[in-house]
Design a protein around this nucleic acid. Structure first.
Lengths: 357, 357
DNA sequence: CTGAAAGCGCTTACAG
DNA sequence: CTGAAAGCGCTTACAG
């Protein structure tokens, strides 16, 4: 099946013109006689010529590709992110080069460096960005936008979920429902999202006289939510509401409550964070904060492409502008049945998406 | 942030050697004095040099990248496929170039052609592969493996789900449970997966004297499953079991049954196909065929990389070998509660994955 | 073990 | 409007 590759020289010879003319004709430059252009196009089509990407990139200094470097490809967060990036990439006619690396520091460094000469710009999510010098030393000289990444010193434009605001919203929602005594199941300490949600929880509790918060450790998976649920029941005074820092832990906690015969929301309210697809299908359906990961990815890419197209003005960007360049997307409160009040249980319905090819 | 790119010439000048030596030293060729190699490496590191991908690809005729061309990035099928491909890509140190196109014929043709000179091989899923000449005309001269793609004339190695065998297994399972009269909710006629599942259903029914099958139309989404469920109940003689050609339709059907007060599995058995994550969380949990999309993608990439590494022997491949090169992955029966018998309802448990970054 | 040179397949000033 | 030539940044025979 591997035909002999046909190059621009073959087309030029066959069409009886120079390679320069072929290049201009095929790339839609104005300065080509219309008849010549048509002839060249016809020959190119007949020969099934398509230009060699690397050669074109090397001489034109443009790849029409953006690099995406993520710590992992597992889980809904990453598939949503890629979907959002992909939609914008398609609309703006760019390819995406996906790097796959295993998640440690040296491997991400290698992945970043390997992007040089392959892409016009970079979208990166890096757990190492808060280590001084990591990005400076490993990012190729390319426009870069960070996604859900915590920088020690803000130096690159960044898009992230406003986890702090989301946690504040949720606590206020629970307080508004009359719950004064709220337990938080926290996420892992090393996780930036988790820390921001914790910070929001604490601030919101502190801001409301009479509100009381207790904290239980967790690490974002279901098992830790289950343990936390048991710990909450075992503790002396039972809280009126439990706020799990993500939905997976909320589900684990829900299971622990079900095992103990504690009813949600009648005996205790329960809320999560993320709005994973399962959140609306559990019993009771879960009140949570919806986070649009696809939108996050899409907007980050828009920003990156704008920067690529307007050229490198970032070199002269003042510190204040860089700071202002950190865009934050607010999560949205989704009220369902697990906190009582007016939430409805949507679990009798099923989602609309067609998951089939 | 956009530093001045440093090239191999800068490293050579700074290290006091030729660019050839820099290239050899950095690429681990044997014929470099150990002291020189160390010195070059030290200089390269100090200058933060990384090679220009396009330049390297152009001269070495290798990109260490595989192209992935899919009709869409939406839905679980594609995220699973990408995850499976990504895992193997990581293990075998390849990048993946993801093309994003909108799904019509011309756009896929363009996406395919744009891959030339950018990748060492191609993984493609194409709804147009059964149109004569489509692949021949648009595939660049590169090793290619097809995924879940129906070819008019088998000409490329292909990996696909054995939908036919899966449907047969399911019908046999239902028959084994004592259900003689089985309704199928079919998928869209233009869809290859759907046609294969239909074919399997018909053959399995025909192979069992006494078994009776009826068919209802559907198009793989929940709404059509809901309509089919209503039609099944409205028809004269009620079947003992319903086999939906995918889980989404099974869920829609389940909902129709619930609305009509028809109990599953007591009044009627219900089965799906795909084993989407929701399948184990509905009530009753859904018996279905599990299809490992990630594995499909991973194995296809393994096959492609083997071909790339061994070189182009495919030109001399006999027709019989090509035919034998169509690998089929058997789906696995997952027995849950919706068909009665010994299936257990797993809905009290929650999945283990941590979906957080 | 090392360097000078050719070449990978394009694009793009520069002349005409 | 067109062509000859330089150049993009590497790798790799070829000599030595």
């Amino acid at each position: 099946m591997d035909r002999q590759p046909v190059t621009i020289r073959d087309v030029a010879r066959e069409a009886g013109v120079s390679v320069a003319t072929v290049s201009r004709a095929l790339n839609g430059h104005a300065n080509v006689a219309e008849g010549v252009r048509r002839h060249v196009q016809e020959v190119a089509q007949r020969l099934r010529y398509s230009p060699h990407g690397a050669a074109r990139s090397l001489s034109s200094r443009s790849t029409q590709t953006i690099g995406v470097v993520l710590p992992d490809l597992h889980g809904e967060f990453f598939s949503e992110l890629i979907r959002g990036i992909g939609a914008v990439a398609r609309a703006r006619r760019r390819h995406m080069l996906l790097s796959s690396y295993h998640g440690d520091r040296e491997q991400q460094a290698a992945a970043l460096r390997a992007m040089r000469g392959r892409v016009d710009g970079l979208l990166v999510m890096s757990p190492f960005a808060d280590q001084p010098g990591f990005l400076e030393e490993n990012l190729p000289p390319l426009p870069t936008v960070l996604v859900n990444t915590h920088q020690a010193e803000p130096a690159w434009p960044a898009f992230e979920i406003d986890n702090h605001a989301g946690a504040v919203s949720m606590v206020e929602h629970l307080l508004g429902l009359g719950h004064r005594n709220i337990a938080l199941i926290a996420g892992p300490e090393h996780n930036y999202d988790a820390r921001e949600r914790l910070r929001g929880f604490r601030e919101a509790i502190a801001a409301h006289p009479g509100a009381e918060g207790r904290e239980y450790p967790g690490d974002f998976d279901e098992a830790s939510g289950h343990r936390a649920g048991q710990a909450i029941l075992a503790a002396g005074e039972r809280p009126q509401a439990v706020f799990a820092a993500n939905d997976m832990m909320a589900l684990g906690c829900l299971y622990a409550f079900a095992q103990a015969g504690v009813r949600v929301p009648q005996d205790i309210a329960l809320a999560g964070f993320d709005d994973i697809p399962l959140a609306r299908f559990v019993h009771p359906s879960l009140t949570t904060m919806r986070v649009s990961i696809a939108q996050l990815g899409g907007r980050a890419l828009e920003r990156l492409l704008d920067q690529i197209e307007t050229g490198p003005d970032s070199a002269t960007q003042a510190d204040a502008e860089i700071e202002a360049d950190r865009q934050v997307l607010a999560p949205e409160l989704v009220v369902r049945a697990s906190c009582g009040g007016h939430g409805d249980d949507a679990s009798a319905s099923v989602p609309r998406e067609n998951t089939q090819a």
